[in-house]
Nucleic acid binder design. Structure first.
Lengths: 191, 191
DNA sequence: GAGAATCGCTACGCTAGCGTAGCGATTCCT
DNA sequence: AGGAATCGCTACGCTAGCGTAGCGATTCTC
């Protein structure tokens, strides 16, 4: 069952994630991954010829899709999405890694693609929740869901990444109620 | 008038900003700054003994405070803040640099302080706009303005940094109207 | 204009990390 | 069991970047 291969893969990708957390994408080196994982540097090169390949595979291992809430209650579903993003997609460790990938994505197209893909995947549940709400008529059918998506997830991402303050109940309440009240009532006048 | 000193300072900090844009905080080296600026490496060391000092001073040069809009019209003032953030505080170049500082801030306390300070300064106009709106009664007096601040600027920051899609009129409309409608009407029920 | 400060330049020695070659040892597959 | 694949290890040569010393040349200051 090629246990050896699996052991190598697990050790190396695990060490890579640790180091991505500690030193970021730019600070990651083959030497440090070898030292941390206990796997010989040459072996690592054999499996992952470039740092980008190693990083990308490690990140794909880290990624675990979260379920899509569908209670029918928009408030509850939104709240579930926010909690999922802040607790699973962007916990402390992942937030640090995310920041580093975000930095790399600004300059390297390869990381930009990776980042775009992972972001889209993480936001898929929210996206679906919004689509269903739109079908139910709880959201204006004229709304651009991409825009809405940025609008509702922006505060959470910013909170985790930029402000680095805890996402507590008060903030979630404020966010959910503002979104629902602001988007639900089609009181758009001065547009 | 110590013209020489000024020339050194300008060249070095300018080159530093260029390189921060191109290669980020971690990729910045004294050697590259020396080569780009035309100033001898030894001279750079004499002025800025550590990379952090050099980076911080360069960033402080880049920072220019934006005016605080105060037309009395909350919609217009918010809109002005968003445009200011997206066009001045976070144009393409500054967004790349910001991403890099954000990454560095996740691990190095020195950069974390710098980042917190710069962020607070950039958001000061918005903060003031919100405070005035609260005094005028256009915003609930029970609202935590820090939370509100994250709520309203989050979408803009995310759009610039994460989604990297243009902030067009449609998005600004959506954002402003949602905020005003959601925060203005105190229809908070299920909290 | 003279002394003091600053700058440019070369030349160091040192380390981290790169990416590869070679080869014995281990493990896999059947 | 035995050939094939994989892994660990050492040892390379090479480059980029570090941070400093020394000293002539330029520039500032008074």
């Amino acid at each position: 069952m090629t246990e050896r291969r699996e052991r190598v893969r697990t050790s190396v990708l695990g060490a890579t994630l640790d180091l991505l957390d500690e030193v970021g994408v730019q600070g990651l080196t083959f030497e440090s991954v070898a030292a941390r994982s206990g796997v010989a540097k040459t072996t690592i090169y054999r499996h992952w010829p470039t740092k980008a390949q190693l990083t990308i595979e490690a990140l794909s291992v880290m990624h675990e899709p979260s379920p899509t809430p569908n209670s029918g209650d928009l408030r509850a579903d939104l709240r579930a999405c926010f909690v999922a993003v802040s607790e699973h997609a962007l916990d402390d460790r992942k937030a640090r890694i995310f920041a580093s990938v975000l930095d790399a994505a600004q300059r390297d197209p390869e990381y930009a693609r990776l980042h775009a893909q992972r972001t889209a995947e993480s936001l898929q549940p929210l996206r679906t929740v919004l689509e269903l709400a739109q079908l139910r008529g709880q959201l204006g059918s004229d709304l651009d869901l991409d825009d809405v998506c940025d609008l509702v997830i922006g505060p959470v991402i910013t909170r985790v990444l930029v402000t680095r303050r805890p996402i507590d109940e008060a903030f979630l309440d404020l966010l959910v109620e503002t979104i629902v009240a602001g988007l639900g009532a089609p009181a758009r006048t001065s547009a």
